[in-house]
Design a protein around this nucleic acid. Structure first.
Length: 283
DNA sequence: ATAAGTACCTGCGGGC
DNA sequence: TGCCCGCAGGTACTTA
C-alpha cells in the first residue's frame, strides 16, 4: 500500500521510538523478503544506535552509529507495529507472534518494532551511510515531490516527447519519486487531466497545475496520516495504513465529487494497473 | 532509448 | 461451506 504519505507517516511514528536509541536485539525470521537480506544483518544491527530516521521516496533510512544505514521498503503490504513503548497516549503490549512477522527489532528501551509483510515485496538492506545515494535502489530516483527539485521546469522537461500516458509517466520513479497508483489518480483528478492523455501532450498550462496539485495531494494525505496516528490507528500500535477519503481512487461508478458534475467515476486499466478518473472533468 | 508486459507473493471478497 | 477468479497501495526484470 504504502506510497510517500504512508511511508512518511510510518517514519514519524517510528522516529520517537528509534532515534537516539540502541537496537538491543534484531531477530530475522527468514533469509529474505524480495531479495536476500545481508547474511549478517542481525549482527550488524545489534548494538547500533539509531542516529536519525529519514525518508527518501518510499524508502525509510535509519542512519546508525556504526556508519551504516538501514534501508527499509514496505513493498505492497509491509506494516510496522510498535509495542512496549509509549506511542502517543498508548502503550501496547508485545503482540502474539504473527504469521508474517519477518524482522523484529528490540530496542534497549523495551520498545519493539515488528516488520510484518504478507506479500514479501518489501526489502531491507544495509550500506555505508556515505554511500546511500549510490545504492542501486536509490541512485536513479527522481526528485522528492515536496522538495525544491520538483518544479514546473523539471516536470515539463521530463514529460516532453514521451508517448506514454501521463498516468504511467507519473508512476515512473525517475520522473518524480514517491507517487504510487492512488496519489497519481488523485492528483490527475485535482489537476483535471485525463490519465489517458499522453505525457508529451500535457501542455504548459496543465503541467503548471499539476506541480502544486501533486504537492497538495501528498501534504493532505500526510496530514490525514498524522491525525490517524494520534487517534484510533494508534490504538493497535500499527503504523502504515490509515483511512483517507479519496475523490476517485476505488470509486468506480460513484458520482464525481466536483460540484455540478453528475458523471460517474470510471475505471480503466493502464500498464496492468487500475486508473480511476472522471471522464467529464478530466481532459 | 522507450514502452509494454511479466514476475515476484499472500490474502480477500465476490460469484457460483 | 468451499472453490475459483480477479484484484490489491511496488518495482525489477524481460521482451518488443
Amino acid at each position: 500500500m504504502p506510497e510517500l504519505p504512508e511511508v512518511e507517516t510510518v517514519r514519524r511514528g517510528l522516529a520517537p521510538v528509534m532515534e537516539g536509541h540502541v537496537i538491543a536485539r534484531a531477530r530475522i525470521n527468514r533469509p529474505d523478503l524480495r531479495w536476500p537480506f545481508p547474511p549478517d544483518m542481525a549482527a550488524r544491527l545489534t548494538g547500533a544506535r539509531v542516529l536519525a530516521l529519514r525518508r527518501r521516496s518510499k524508502y525509510l533510512l535509519a542512519d546508525l552509529s556504526t556508519g551504516e544505514t538501514l534501508l527499509v521498503h514496505l513493498g505492497m503490504s509491509g506494516r510496522m507495529l510498535v509495542s512496549g513503548a509509549p506511542v502517543g497516549r498508548f502503550v501496547h503490549d508485545h503482540p502474539a507472534p504473527g504469521k508474517h512477522d519477518h524482522v523484529i527489532l528490540d530496542m534497549e528501551t523495551g520498545a519493539r518494532i515488528t516488520f510484518n509483510d504478507p506479500r514479501r515485496f518489501g526489502a531491507m538492506d544495509l550500506m555505508p551511510t556515505d554511500a546511500v545515494e549510490a545504492h542501486p535502489l536509490l541512485a536513479r530516483l527522481g526528485p522528492e515531490p515536496l522538495g525544491n527539485g520538483f518544479h514546473e521546469g523539471h516536470l515539463a522537461a521530463a514529460l516532453a516527447g514521451r508517448r506514454t500516458p501521463v498516468k504511467s509517466a507519473l508512476l515512473d520513479q525517475r520522473i518524480v519519486a514517491g507517487l504510487g497508483n492512488i496519489y497519481v489518480c488523485e492528483a490527475l483528478y485535482r489537476a483535471r487531466i485525463s490519465p489517458r492523455r499522453l505525457a508529451g501532450n500535457v501542455g504548459q498550462r496543465r503541467v503548471g497545475r499539476l506541480v502544486p496539485v501533486i504537492r497538495d495531494v501528498l501534504r493532505d494525505a500526510i496530514a490525514a496520516g498524522g491525525s490517524s496516528l494520534r487517534d484510533y490507528r494508534q490504538a493497535d500500535g500499527e503504523l502504515g495504513y490509515f483511512q483517507h477519503g479519496f475523490d476517485v481512487y476505488g470509486r468506480e461508478g460513484a458520482p464525481c465529487h466536483t460540484p455540478g458534475c453528475a458523471a460517474r467515476i470510471a475505471r480503466i486499466v493502464q500498464s496492468a494497473r487500475s486508473s480511476f478518473y472522471c471522464p467529464r472533468c478530466q481532459r
